[in-house]
Design a protein around this nucleic acid. Structure first.
Lengths: 175, 175
DNA sequence: TAATACGTTTAGTATAAACTAAACATATTA
DNA sequence: TAATATGTTTAGTTTATACTAAACGTATTA
């Protein structure tokens, strides 16, 4: 492969690493996704080890996470014991997967914790003024998380619509 | 303050730590915000040291970040050299601030990197098939980031509307 | 001017995350 | 059955992050 293409690939993969890290995943995971994404053919684990330059163990665990998130798909080929991977290219589907897998459970946790705190404030009959204040604030916070939850739900729904070929909603700056 | 309230406060603050960490900030930052959020009166840096249980240096840097994000506001009181902090309670405003400060710059970076990679692919006249493939894939990725960018812009706009008292859009599950 | 009260910065340290190398389990082939 | 090829798990190490303790700078007071 020409030096230019190699550099382009390298640069792109670096960018994927950075984004991955930003979203709270490991850099290697982003790099691995990038490598798979820029492959015309399904990629084996050992090829990834060579291309990305991390150990087999790291590739194994990272690729498993990628699969769980629906970012790559395993492809077993007949008469070949290797696992091959291809990239999911519907990014909105990926966003849905990540939101469902991570954000939703975190949001639920947040809601639960705030709710539990509110329960703890119930039945306090000393420090009345402070208790009232706590209730108000916690209530406001809970309300926010509920709304955020709804908003994420709306986004997922919108993306579901979009994936069903309703076009034009998000295309303003499309290049 | 009663033991119940203290426990409620503690639990709430723990939750804020967790959320903070989830969003890629330090746990201490969330705890500090929680402590300020649950204070009826403006809180000084030294009070925070006592309440949250981290060092003065850590409080100093974390509270500065909180202020930069618009999550707390400094309040200087006449004839008092201490800085006091109060919590921003408009969470959508906070979301806007965080989006603007962090996500936007990251999105821009992502767009730039992908763009640069595409430039590197331009003018490759060997490996034509591969170059075409790279261009397609990178193009699709860039398109996605553009759309994401637009979507975030839409959200900020929606929240701006909401903050101008257009009600009912996000209230479905409000408690 | 010295002493005090504050917030900030810095050098060093602790901790958590993610990696490597190697052992391992399992399936396939010779 | 032994040897090989594969993916996974584990123990240990590296690295990045966030903290602590203390020095520092600056403003205020005595």
């Amino acid at each position: 492969m020409s030096a230019e293409l190699l550099r382009a690939r390298e640069h792109f993969i670096q960018g994927m690493s950075r984004i991955s890290h930003f979203w709270g995943f490991s850099k290697a995971m982003g790099a691995i996704y990038g490598a798979i994404y820029l492959s015309e053919n399904p990629v084996s684990l050992d090829e990834l080890v060579g291309q990305v330059g991390v150990s087999k163990g790291a590739v194994s665990t990272n690729v498993r996470t990628l699969e769980r998130l629906g970012m790559v798909h395993k492809q077993i080929q007949l008469g070949d014991r290797k696992d091959y991977y291809i990239a999911e290219t519907d990014f909105w589907k990926i966003v849905r997967g990540v939101l469902r897998e991570r954000e939703q459970s975190e949001f639920d946790q947040a809601l639960r914790t705030v709710g539990e705190s509110m329960v703890l404030v119930e039945g306090v009959d000393e420090d009345v003024a402070t208790a009232v204040f706590y209730r108000e604030r916690m209530q406001a916070m809970q309300s926010f998380f509920n709304n955020l939850d709804n908003l994420v739900g709306m986004l997922i729904a919108l993306e579901d619509l979009r994936s069903k070929s309703v076009q034009g909603l998000f295309g303003k700056k499309e290049t």
